[in-house]
Design a protein around this nucleic acid. Structure first.
Lengths: 219, 219
DNA sequence: TCCTTGCAGTACCGTACGGTACGGTTCCGT
DNA sequence: ACGGAACCGTACCGTACGGTACTGCAAGGA
């Protein structure tokens, strides 16, 4: 797939370094800590350059989101024949990756930033974030869904709806809790495992996709 | 002096009116619009009174959360005998209520506020919000879970885990999307219906709790 | 060598906020 | 009637931010 270059402003290396520092400041101290003066000091650049490069503060924030999104590359894994075990493997990997991304410091900081700005009308940050950061991973999951259905391993009327079910099973309210400051899970892999087990119980084509040997009964 | 978290400060009617105005300002314009001067002007009170009543700005924010939580009363519905249909009814009602609460303007505004402040270390707003606003509804759901299990209608090893499953099925990523500024669902009841159907498929004791007649297939 | 371009560093400006202080008014108890 | 408490309205203060302007300086090209 060819990535849309029009959405990617392609900043200069110097600008990338500045944006990196900006993300660091944001992660460390939240939006309050991300001031133009502070960023100029931390990144050894002048405020005038910041305004020349990014226009204004909102432009800087948008650039930070675009820059972070440009760092995350989602690789389309499409091997050959898809078996039940392989599908579960892929689903669990997806779940682990999803939890890993959502609990990342930068992701949490950017989401907090966008949510904090979401009240204002002209704030495109939320759209931007969900567009750049989410669409990739959504595509990967939907692809997995439809591959599973084509292989006769999954049954559902609507891939999008099934994906939302999987998402809910994996994440539940964890994302919001982490956004509120709570700690993440101790074992993302276990959570992914349980979620995929439930998902396959709901949408798996054959019942024996559930292996009785796995320890899903827990304590 | 700081009040204990556990008790209800029980504000005076005048203070309640001021807090109501504060919530209105917050809902309308976000945290940026909630200034002490602006609140004093909007509520026809003096800034001095604000600081006398709530200590400082953080105290005001905490008071707003406590006040809003005091308005939401969750009534423990525990009738007599619990049948499968009755259980599903209660679960669906819970789902509708949950979606209704989460998509409420005040809830979204307060969550945005707490999330925006979550980066700072000394910010108890997140804990406060999840404590006051969530515990009630959590209790209600867990009670429902265990009542269902006692009646032999539900099977699960852990009520808390089962509740999180239900929560994820109902809400998925909708809460975060709404926090980012997206619109809510057109039909909360339908979403609750689908979620409860899936939940009963996972944790319902007997398979015939799923009535074939219901229209869960569609697009 | 000179001129231009780009940027760091800093000083500066207007504004707006959190928080405090003070005068004036209403209300209540005695 | 008197005094005090509570409170409104406003003026005020220090600070810090976003954004602009200006001064130096280093690199590159003719």
């Amino acid at each position: 797939m060819t990535a849309e270059l029009s959405d990617m402003p392609e900043f200069s290396p110097r600008q990338n370094a500045v944006l990196e520092q900006a993300l660091k400041l944001l992660v460390d101290g939240g939006e309050k800590a991300l001031t133009t003066s502070g960023l100029a000091r931390a990144a050894n650049c002048s405020k005038e350059s910041l305004y020349k490069w990014f226009g204004d503060r909102d432009g800087l924030l948008a650039a930070m989101i675009a820059y972070q999104a440009s760092k995350v590359r989602t690789f389309e894994r499409s091997g050959g024949r898809l078996t039940a075990d392989l599908l579960r493997e892929h689903l669990e990997t997806f779940g682990r990756d999803l939890l890993e991304v959502l609990s990342g410091e930068v992701s949490l900081a950017l989401n907090r930033l966008a949510i904090g700005q979401a009240s204002r009308e002209g704030s495109k940050l939320g759209r931007l974030l969900v567009e750049h950061g989410r669409r990739q991973i959504d595509r990967r999951a939907i692809g997995l869904m439809e591959a599973g259905r084509r292989a006769g391993l999954l049954r559902f009327p609507d891939a999008d709806s099934a994906y939302h079910t999987l998402y809910g099973l994996i994440v539940s309210d964890l994302h919001v809790r982490m956004l509120l400051g709570e700690n993440g899970l101790k074992d993302n892999a276990r959570q992914a495992e349980k979620a995929v087990h439930a998902f396959l119980s709901l949408h798996g084509a054959s019942q024996n996709t559930e292996r009785a040997g796995r320890a899903h009964s827990d304590a």
